[in-house]
Design a protein around this nucleic acid. Structure first.
Lengths: 197, 197
DNA sequence: AGAGACCTTGACTGGTTGGTCAGGTCTGCT
DNA sequence: AGCAGACCTGACCAACCAGTCAAGGTCTCT
């Protein structure tokens, strides 16, 4: 049974942990930092989670579901090009709404995905393989230009997540303007032209 | 004056540091790991570099020059579309040849570029601004489809570096096959279609 | 109100890490 | 050979860090 206080504090801790892990990486983050952001004492963090690693794992477990939802939402009966464009838009929207999650994921993968290897090799791979097969069917049906489906998926990931992951760089180059200003239109054009049969 | 031994050992240390920093991030890396990879003792590392941070800075200083060289090589008198495509090819080649450097850079930017802020805000921004102006001239001359030059540059960075930075993920999805297999052809098609006037 | 479970924390511990230092070894030069 | 300077290291230190624990505070339910 979980109490009201438990729910509130677990949420506060995970939110703070996401702040810190996504900005510093797993090893760079300290429990003191997380405790500071959460407004709780360090021993109290460890009352709710067994270890620093448990917090990280809890975040990653939640993350993968959310992260893959847009890909799962591809509709096999829809129009190929429209579906891919919609997928791209959803991914871009996620970078806008959940930049911390994007950076958490990026940190993890950059370091070889030591704590995420199983799920990437399992669930994620399966979903990507299925989506690739679906894209191939769309191509065969003439709804999409013939492009490699894997690279197509990777390119959507790369382009959309770049705005969240490299936010600091883009912001400095663009003098602090919203890094994603104009991104929608640009990506729309890019994929429109790439995919036109 | 620098001796032969100094040159050899500095090189060994920076190479080992690049290995470790790019795989673990700055805070995640330890001097013991670097010493192990370099085959030198920890105090010996500190005989050649004042601190852990000095090693990191030395790497970043070297890096930015190499990293921006392809962008500097844009030829204002060349054909716009051909120049951009050539730039993309050079960037992709760099991801292939220098994946560790790419990941070092990604780690740094992901964490807000705390040790690279000045250079990104200075040299890099200046170079990008100039390149963007050049791209606009090419567009005005009808050599290139009218796209936002900043987003065009970002898209090249995103797509090419993704193969180095997210290597672990791509490798798992593609069952260990060379992650960049087919990338050249895919990106060629993508930018060809995007940029055709 | 009172009992009992739940929540919180100051003080501590053992291990790790960046960095120091005194003294020893090697190298290149005459 | 012998010397000066460059190179190297074991032993050490202070700071930091994840995690523990006993003791005290708070909430909830009757």
């Amino acid at each position: 049974m979980t109490t009201r206080i438990q729910r509130r504090n677990r949420r506060k801790i995970l939110d703070a942990a996401l702040d810190v892990f996504s900005a510093q990486g797993f090893r760079g983050a300290t429990l003191d930092q997380i405790a500071g952001v959460a407004g709780l004492s360090k021993p109290n963090l460890l009352y709710y989670f067994d270890s620093k690693e448990a917090m990280h794992r809890a975040l990653l477990d939640d993350l993968l579901d959310v992260w893959l939802e847009p890909l799962r939402a591809l509709n096999p009966d829809g129009n190929g090009k429209a579906e891919i464009l919609a997928y791209m838009r959803r991914k871009l929207q996620m970078s806008r709404e959940f930049p911390r999650e994007s950076r958490l994921f990026a940190n993890e993968v950059l370091q070889g995905a030591p704590r995420l290897g199983d799920q990437i090799g399992g669930d994620l791979k399966k979903l990507v393989d299925e989506s690739a097969a679906l894209i191939r069917r769309w191509i065969a049906a003439g709804q999409l230009a013939p492009v490699d489906p894997y690279h197509l998926i990777f390119s959507i990931w790369a382009l959309t997540q770049h705005y969240a992951d490299f936010d600091a760089q883009i912001r400095m180059i663009r003098d602090g303007a919203d890094p994603m200003e104009g991104a929608d239109a640009f990506l729309e054009t890019l994929f429109e032209r790439l995919l036109k049969p």
